[in-house]
Amino acid sequence: MNNNLKKINIYAIYLGAIILILPLIAFFINAFSFRWFYPQVIPKELSLQAWVRLKLIPKSGQRTFEGFIELWASNPAVIKALLNSLSIGFLVTIVSIIIALPAARVLGLLNFRFKKLIIFIMVSPTILPPIAFVLGLNINFISWGFSGNYFGVCLVHLVPIMPYVVLTMTGIFANYNPDFEHQARTLGANKTRTFLLITLPAIAPGMVVAALFAFLVSWSQYLLTFLIGAGKVMTLPLLVFSTASSGNPALTAAISIIFIFPAILILFFTSKFVSGESGATSGFGKI
C-alpha cells in the first residue's frame, strides 16, 4: 500500500470512530450541563442539576454520605426502576440458565430424530418480531392474572432470552467431551461432585457469557415490559422512553447513562468472547 493511501485510510478510521462516539459525547454533555443552549458546542457551565432532579444526587450542601443514603432511601423513581431492572434481569438470567442447561447438553451432545426441527422451534422467537406474539399474549396474561405484575414481566422476558441461552450453551456442549465426566466417575466421584468439579468448571466461561448476554437482553427490553407490565412494573428502559418522549434532554441523558452503563461494562469484559461465531453475537443485534 502506498504511504499516502495508508494515511488517508487511518484518518478515515479515526473519523469513523469520532462519528460513532458522538452520541455518547452528547449524552455526557447533556447530562452534566443543565442549560446547554443552541448554538453552544461546549456548554458554558457544568451542572449536576439533572441528577439532582432525578433525586440521584442530593442538593448542594447535603452531599454527605448520610445525605445520599437519605435521598436514596426515599425511593426515587430512577432507583425504583433500577432495582426492578436489576432484579428482573438477575432472576430471568438464573432461571433461563437453569432451564437451558439440560436442553443445551442434550442438543449439543446427542443426535436424535427431530433435532433440527427442535432447534428451529427454539430459535423462532429470534426471527419473528416480538410484536407478533406479545399482543396476543397480553390478552392471555390478563385472563391468567399475569398482567401488570412482576411475575408476568419475568415470564415474558424468558421468550427472547431462552433461544440465545440455549443456542450459546449448545455451542459450549458441542465442543465438550463428556468422557471427562466418565473419567471422574470411574475415579470415584459421585454424580453431584462430578457436576460441580468437572462439568461446571468446563462450561463456566461459556455460561458466564450466556448469562451476561441474557441479562443484557432482559435489561434492554422495552415493548414486552411495557405491555405485560401494564405500566405497573417500571423499569429503566420504560423510564428512558417516557423521559425521552417528554423531551427533557438533560434528564433523558442522565437516565440513559445509567441505562447503558452495564452494557459497556459487559462489552468490556466479554469482548474477547464476542466473535462472529458465538451464538451470543447474533443476539446482540436485537437488544
Partner: peptide, 15 residues
C-alpha cells in the same frame, strides 16, 4: 467500533 453492539436500541435512538 464495537461499542454500539451491546447498546440498547432505545439509547441509540436518543443519541
Amino acid at each position: 467500533y464495537s461499542l454500539n453492539l451491546p447498546m440498547p436500541h432505545l439509547v441509540v435512538a436518543v443519541g
